[in-house]
Design a protein around this nucleic acid. Structure first.
Length: 170
DNA sequence: CAGGATCTACTTG
DNA sequence: CAAGTAGATCCTG
């Protein structure tokens, strides 16, 4: 009976200057982050049923998101659950996390970073599949010609995120 | 098998 | 120089 009540995922809101983000957690860590503009309806968990551990993660997540939005480097990150991605995508995402705050990289550099220099186009695909934008900084990845490139959350958002990080676009 | 958040090289005004 | 085109390449569903 005392089955540890396992919670597949829990969705919690994050208030920010840009609106309300939504964070989804699995029992391993933060699994998904959605932009305020994403109207996708999800069942919000009742606050009382949220495990203490997840509440702690959520606090860290909120701090991190708001830090980045206000141009400060986050001091801590919650654990990530990247299990939704393929092995290739996870390699790309991990490589993205190594891009320093306030700096940028390119799809090509990322491809080289994971030891597959010619997979530039596939890297673009992996960026689009990133489940945790902002914290896994897909917005810091530009095209080789130093142009903006694309962004699933809209190019305008990408430019705004970079501006807040103090990045000057050439 | 088609298609993409690319890239490089090349061709045109 | 800017802009358009073609091919190469590789992961995904």
């Amino acid at each position: 009976m005392s089955e540890p009540l396992r919670v597949p995922w829990i969705c919690l809101p994050i208030a920010s200057e840009l609106g309300e983000f939504r964070a989804t957690y699995s029992d391993v860590g933060l699994a998904q982050l959605r932009f305020p503009s994403d109207k996708t309806i999800s069942t919000a968990a009742k606050h009382a049923s949220v495990p203490a551990e997840i509440q702690r993660w959520h606090h860290v997540t909120s701090e991190a998101v708001n830090a980045i939005l206000s141009g400060r480097k986050p001091k801590a990150f919650p654990p990530f659950d990247l299990s939704s991605g393929t092995a290739f995508q996870q390699r790309v995402w991990r490589a993205m996390m190594r891009i320093p705050f306030g700096q940028t990289s390119s799809y090509g550099e990322l491809a080289s970073a994971i030891g597959n220099a010619k997979a530039v186009r596939a890297v673009g695909g992996a960026c689009g599949a990133n489940p945790i934008p902002v914290l896994v900084p897909c917005h810091r990845v530009l095209a080789a010609n130093h142009k903006l490139g694309g962004f699933s959350g809209g190019v305008a958002t990408k430019r705004e995120l970079l501006r807040r990080e103090g990045v000057t676009l050439i």
